[in-house]
Simulated assay, not measured.
Amino acid sequence: MTERHPRTAPHTPRPARRKRLAVYLVLATSLTLCGAAYPIPPHPGPGPAPEPVPDSPAPADVLVPGEPREPGQVAYLMDTPDQVLPPLVYEPTAAEEAVEPAEPAAGVERLVEYVPGDEVGAVACSRQAGPYQRQVERWLKLAIDGKQSAADCAAIRRFQTDHGIRPNNGFAGPTTWGTMRLLSARANPNAAGRCPVRRSRIACVDLDRQIMWVQNGRKVTFGPVAVRSGRPGYATRTGTYPVYWRHKNHWSTIYNAPMPYAQFFSGGQAFHAIYDNIYSTGGSRGCVNLTYSDAKRLWGALAQGDPVHIWGRRPGA
């Protein structure tokens, strides 16, 4: 429809204009509540750098990163939303495709454990049972009682030291358990047969274990790697979906946040990188998050049209 100039537009009676305005307001409210947005042109670039997020004390019963951020390191708002409706699909220019997304700051991808607020840098060996105490005890072949002991702490510390998890204070947190879960899956991630075996490529997302991989037939061609899926109220949808659009420099116009190496498969849900700890205790808002390094490699391991099969449920979601 061609937009008319106000002076040449036909006269509309006041009651009709009020009614039309009311309809527009209802539609706008509905779109806002469901998280959608009118299509707008893609973000031209990263814009101004986010402000540094100050560190603040946390209660003892709240898990926080066990090591502070590097001086001057900023935190992007990484919990990009499930937009419900698909993003505006367009063909990126060759110049845009040639630009790689900004790399994360040094140290962002290192394995940092989440510990109680009163144990950040304060203890050499945690006396507290972590949220994954029993799972970690079972994996390390310790006595499974869900209680932290000196022997438990020593064994957990050895594992953390061997795998570069910091701080290595023996707390059975999400990073330690997530690393164990990933190690257990490496030999044969599809041992349970939950992902369909096809003669072509398929991406497999196991929400129970918070891992994903790509397989072609029975051969694993990518991964497995750790992922972070939807938090409570924003669950990642299960089922099988095709990768319908890829944009390596995608920008969430709703939350003004980057979604590097985005590969959309269901509405606003996509694989994409985060500039954050993949084992953080909060989930995404529907997307399947990967580390920057893994998302960049996945970009070359999938193509538009490839199926994505998702099953299970994120622990706690």
Rank of each mutant, 00 (worst) to 15 (best):
W245S: 03
A129I: 08
H43G: 11
P167A: 08
R201P: 04
G146W: 06
D61R: 10
K19V: 12
C34V: 12
H163K: 14
R314V: 13
Y279A: 00
W251H: 12
P71V: 03
D79R: 11
C195Y: 09
F271Y: 11
G233I: 13
N168T: 12
K248F: 05
G193K: 07
V205P: 10
R313Q: 13
R127D: 12
S126E: 09
W299P: 00
P13I: 05
P101I: 05
V112A: 02
Y76P: 04
S293Q: 06
D306P: 00
I310E: 08
P167S: 05
V288K: 00
A301W: 09
K141F: 11
V62A: 04
G107H: 07
S284H: 03
L290S: 02
P81D: 07
Q73A: 15
A257D: 06
T29D: 13
V197L: 09
A122W: 01
G316T: 00
G300P: 12
P59W: 08
G267H: 10
E119G: 07
H5W: 12
L207H: 04
Q135N: 05
N168P: 14
L183D: 13
R246M: 11
E96R: 15
N256A: 13
V308E: 15
A95I: 04
C153V: 09
Y275F: 11
P189K: 00
W139H: 11
P101K: 03
A154E: 14
R4L: 14
P50A: 13
P6T: 11
